[in-house]
Design a binder for these strands. Structure first.
Lengths: 154, 154
DNA sequence: GTAATAACTTGCAAAATGCAAGCTAAACCG
DNA sequence: CGGTTTAGCTTGCATTTTGCAAGTTATTAC
């Protein structure tokens, strides 16, 4: 294991040194948008991350204080990964990345109505997502998801 | 050269496949914040990117339609790299990453007054940065930089 | 009590990274 | 006008990281 020399004190570089690779943000995405929480959940994502890479990235994200690992309350085989405040503060980045991808990928799987909704009131929507994730929910999946909450409001 | 199989149609993954590494966004940062434009400019950045990696990333970003290379109008040894609209649309991501880094890096070099300014009126500030870059300017460096424009407004 | 499941680890081939050096064309300098 | 810089890459090679397949260990399910 290497990597501790800072390349610069640029804030963007700081982010890149913590999550600047092709896998880390997918793990965060899985938690935020789909309510995934365990090693097995992450493994089953569409992008098919390799087991060793996943273990490595989870450890790295934990070292950076972006997520924490806690034993599952009832199934002692499982570990539950959750975002710290530092991790929850990555949500604005995810939202902007999703925006960009949805705009420029002609074959995007992003629901355009969701993208439009977020952009119609970005600041509040981001806050809502953050609050939801902080309480253990996610954007699309599970009870108390962001989409459920929004439906409830009518 | 490899890489053309899409891992998924997730919009976040789409972004990661285009610029998900430790170097690509630093090049975009150099253009947006510091008005850098040439291979030599990028090489001289604090993070000391290797020459072959830089050439590789510039080609990749060009292939993805994020930037374009044009011959320098007077010095024919130089090539000028500029952002396309697709590249300019990465600015919100950069801004959020800078925010995150400035918040969590105890040794950050980010000017806190700039960060505060952006966050005090994010939508308009992002638009101002985008307009400035579209016209060939940058946030901090050169005539007509964003900070100059803001100073002028008083 | 046996079979699954969950979370990893290990070994190894293939690809990407990071130096240092080289190469070509255009500009600069006396 | 000729030698020296400068600019933008490319190449070779050692090191590191990735990715795949196959374990390993501790629970839990049947």
């Amino acid at each position: 294991m290497k990597k501790q020399l800072r390349r610069s004190n640029c804030p963007i570089n700081f982010g890149l040194e913590a999550f600047g690779d092709t896998w880390s943000l997918l793990i965060i995405r899985d938690i935020v948008y789909f309510g995934k929480k365990t090693y097995g959940d992450f493994l089953r994502s569409d992008e098919r991350i390799a087991t060793n890479i996943l273990a490595n990235r989870l450890a790295q994200l934990e070292r950076h204080g972006i997520l924490v690992k806690t034993p599952h309350p009832i199934d002692r085989r499982k570990e539950v990964y959750t975002l710290t405040e530092k991790g929850i503060d990555l949500i604005p980045i995810l939202v902007e990345m999703a925006n960009w991808g949805a705009k420029y990928d002609p074959d995007t799987g992003a629901p355009q109505e969701w993208i439009a909704l977020v952009n119609s009131d970005k600041e509040n929507m981001i806050r809502l997502i953050q609050d939801t994730v902080r309480e253990g929910g996610s954007v699309f999946v599970g009870p108390n998801s962001v989409i459920d909450r929004l439906a409830q409001r009518e």
